[in-house]
Computed example of a mutant assay.
Amino acid sequence: MVIATGIGSMPGDDQPAYDEALRVVLGELAPDRHGLPHLPEVPGRGAIASMTGRGLAVLADLDADLQPAGWRLTGTHGRSGVDHRRARSLLAQDLDALEEQAQGYAGAFKIQVAGPWTLATTVERPRGDKLLADHGARRELAQALAEGLRGHVADVRRRLPGVGRLVVQVDEPALAAVLDGVVPTASGFHRHRTVDLPEASQALEWVLEAIAETDAEPWVHSCASGVPWAMLRKAGARGLSADLATLAAADHDALAEALESGESVALGVVAALDPATRPTDGQLTESVLRWLDMLGLDPDGVGERLLVTPTCGLAGASPGWARRALALARATAAHVAG
C-alpha cells in the first residue's frame, strides 16, 4: 500500500493557525486513509517558529540569541537569549497541542528537524559570519544536534505512547549549496569554501545514527537539485524525500536502489504553492506510475516504502490549497496502490 505524507510546513501566522494545521494533518493523513501524519511547522509565526528557530530549539548544550541579522550562537552555555528560550517554549507548546489532539493515536508518525548543514548556513558564530566558516563550530553544531534529537525523540514518544514507527526527517535544503561552494558570506561579496564530501557525510552520520539509536527511522529531505542521494544513504538515511521535478538521471538510480533495498522514498509530485491550474489525482497518479515504469519497478512491489508528498513545504500556500494538496497526495497514493 503506497501512502502519503506532508513535508512539514503549513500556512498561517498565529497559534490558532497551528492548531488548525495540526487538525488538517491528523485528519487528511490519518493511517486509515493511506497517510503518515506529521508534526506540522508554521514558520509564519516568526523567527522562533522558522526552520532555523525550530532546529536551535532541539540543540543540546548550545545556546543562541536572535540578532538583527539573524540567529547567532552566544558562545557560552547557559546564556540563551530570550528568543532562543521562546523557540524552545514554542516547540514544547506545539507538542502539548499534539498530545491533546492525538490522544489515543496509534500508528506511524513523522517529525522534522533542520539538518546540520542547513543550520550551519543560517546561524552565525558568536563573533559573526556563518558557522559554515568554522570547521570546529560545524562539528560542535552537528554533535549538539545529534544529542538534542535523542531527547526530542524521547519527548515525542512520551507524548504519543501509541506510536510504533517514528520517522525523523532531517531537512537539508542547503546541502547541495554547501557542497558546491555557493553559500554567500555574511557580507554577500564572497562565497564560503566548499565542504568536502567526507566531512559533510560525517556530520550527517552523527545525526542520523543518533536518530537510529532511539529506534526511530532517519530520513533526509531536500527539494533542491544536485543532492548527493547516494552519499545520504551511506551516511545512514533510511528514507529519501525529493521533489520529482528536480531529479537528474543519476538521482533516479539512487532512489530506485533505495526502494529495492527496502528503504523509503517520498516522492514530491503535488505543487507546494497554489497552482494556476489544479491537477487531478488521476494526472498525479499517472506521473508516479510513469516514474515507477521508467525505473522498472512494480507499483504492487514497492508498498509502503513509496510515499507521495507535496514537492516541498506548504508554508507559502493558501490554507485551502494546503488542505487540498494533502488530500491529493493521499488520493494519488491510494490510486498508485491500485
Rank of each mutant, 00 (worst) to 15 (best):
R72S: 09
P68F: 14
T74W: 12
S80E: 15
R45V: 06
A47I: 06
G81I: 03
G46Q: 07
H84D: 10
R85V: 12
D32H: 14
G44Y: 08
W71P: 00
H84A: 07
G53K: 05
R45M: 15
G70I: 03
R54E: 05
G44R: 12
P37L: 00
L66P: 00
W71G: 02
G81T: 08
G55R: 01
T52F: 02
D63C: 04
R33L: 11
G70F: 04
P37V: 01
T76P: 06
A69R: 15
V42I: 13
A47M: 14
R33A: 14
G35S: 13
H77M: 09
H38F: 15
G46T: 02
A87Y: 14
W71C: 03
T52I: 04
H77V: 07
T76H: 11
D32G: 05
S80G: 11
A60T: 01
R85D: 07
G55Y: 01
D63N: 09
P68D: 13
G75M: 03
R88Y: 07
H38W: 10
S50D: 11
S89N: 09
Q67W: 13
P40I: 04
V82I: 11
L62A: 05
I48E: 13
R72M: 15
L36S: 05
P40M: 08
L59A: 06
G46K: 04
V42P: 03
L73M: 04
L56F: 08
P43M: 08
L56D: 02
D61N: 10
I48R: 11
L39P: 02
P31R: 13
E41D: 08
P40L: 05
Q67F: 07
G53V: 00
L56Y: 00
L62N: 08
G35K: 04
I48A: 11
E41Y: 02
A57F: 09
E41S: 10
H34D: 03
D83R: 10
A87E: 12
L39E: 00
D65E: 15
A60L: 06
G81C: 04
D83M: 14
V82H: 12
P31W: 09
W71T: 01
R79Y: 14
